[in-house]
């Protein structure tokens, strides 16, 4: 079975160059320390070959080398899902409204595919260029528990896998935006309002 890719092409080129450099440095004048460096170099080469850094695996970073959108060379994939205690048609209608589709900062969403109460797909365009694309799938939850919305978002990476990893750890990643978008939708559909503390009193910070 193929390992999940979590390195971009640029990352892999960097790992390849770094790995060769470390090996070359170690071979010129072998010492114990340089032997260790050679080990690291070999590990980098192995990751460049497999396209997968095991340290990023717990962070759930996934690279798609062959995105469905031809404008995108490669993408980072984020997925999430939410169960909303409302009928499928109502949940679908919510996202059909302009402005409700999940989108990354400063991007405009344009609908590209629609199957009523089943699927919505869109592209996010920023300054005339494709920034991300995504889809929402709607299906009934078990036992009349409402509607499951499965979201998939692919975005063009900047900063490679390391950038994505740092963004994830600091909570600013597209993963977070997608999760907040789904959570907000559930709150609005189920309760009629989004939870907020904005404007509440606070003592001197």
């Amino acid at each position: 079975m193929r390992r999940k890719l979590n390195l971009t092409r640029a990352d892999r080129v960097g790992y390849l160059v770094g790995g060769i450099a470390l090996l070359a440095w170690a071979v010129r004048r072998p010492t114990w320390f340089r032997g260790g460096a050679a080990g690291v170099g070999g590990w980098l080469l192995w990751q460049a070959y497999t396209g997968s850094n095991p340290l990023f695996r717990p962070l759930g970073i996934r690279v798609n080398p062959r995105p469905a959108e031809v404008d995108a060379h490669e993408t980072i994939v984020v997925e999430d899902a939410v169960t909303i205690s409302r009928p499928r048609a109502e949940v679908f209608a919510f996202w059909r409204r302009p402005g409700n589709l999940p989108r990354l900062l400063e991007a405009d969403a344009e609908l590209v595919r629609e199957r009523p109460a089943v699927e919505l797909a869109w592209r996010g365009v920023r300054a005339g260029r494709l920034a991300h694309f995504g889809s929402l799938e709607f299906r009934d939850a078990t036992g009349a528990r409402g509607t499951i919305v499965a979201a998939r978002l692919e975005y063009v990476p900047s900063g490679g896998s390391l950038g994505a990893a740092l963004a994830r750890m600091t909570g600013h990643a597209p993963q977070r935006l997608l999760a907040e978008s789904l959570r907000r939708a559930r709150a609005l559909l189920e309760t009629g309002e989004a939870p907020s503390t904005r404007g509440q009193p606070v003592g001197p910070r």
């Binding site: 169960t83 409402g146 309760t191 989004a194 939870p195």
Partner: peptide, 25 residues
């Protein structure tokens, strides 16, 4: 703080309300 509408509130598991924590993440 519980919404009364969600999966958990409907099962009277109010302290597990899914909608009331704006900092759920």
């Amino acid at each position: 703080i519980a919404c009364g509408n969600c999966f958990f509130c409907r099962r009277e598991l109010y302290s597990l309300c899914e909608n009331s924590n704006p900092n759920a993440w």
